[in-house]
Amino acid sequence: MSKEHDRGMTIIVKTVTRLTVGLIFLYGIYIILHGHLTPGGGFAGGVIVALSFINVDLAFGGKVSDRIFSKGSTSVIEALGGVMFLALALLGLQWGGFFDNFLHPDGEPGMLISAGIIPLENIAISLKVGAGLFAIFLTLITLQKFESEKK
């Protein structure tokens, strides 16, 4: 993704971004997956994941980030997150009620695989929040581009 030297910011920013962006992304994933154990969760993790994409967009310009994660796919992923969350809630109806934690008995407290459907819901939320935030960013950016082109 470094081929386009003429777009985006300087080489320093690009190099630093290249080094850090994977770490930021992974940290987001960590926060999402440990949402039921430590502070954080789907929303905070989703924001961090979105930040990693925003970093790429800022440093390398819209074309590169568009190749990784285009505006069309943000809305699809966001909707997917919503559907997943809703499906988990509705699956609970099978066992006892809306949002029933039907995986609850599995796993012991404090371990990674525990808390039933809550980690799964965290993943759904992170999809929705991450894609949604990135979509908001892209919308504002494209509006700005649209304005500068008009002038």
Binding site: V76, A79, G82, V83, L86, L90, L93, F98
Partner: peptide, 19 residues
């Protein structure tokens, strides 16, 4: 158990429309 459908149905409709 069917009361939540008043909210869940339109929500699902909204997301699936996007998908």
């Amino acid at each position: 158990s069917t009361i939540p459908l008043f909210v869940a149905l339109p929500l699902a409709g909204a997301f699936l429309t996007v998908l």
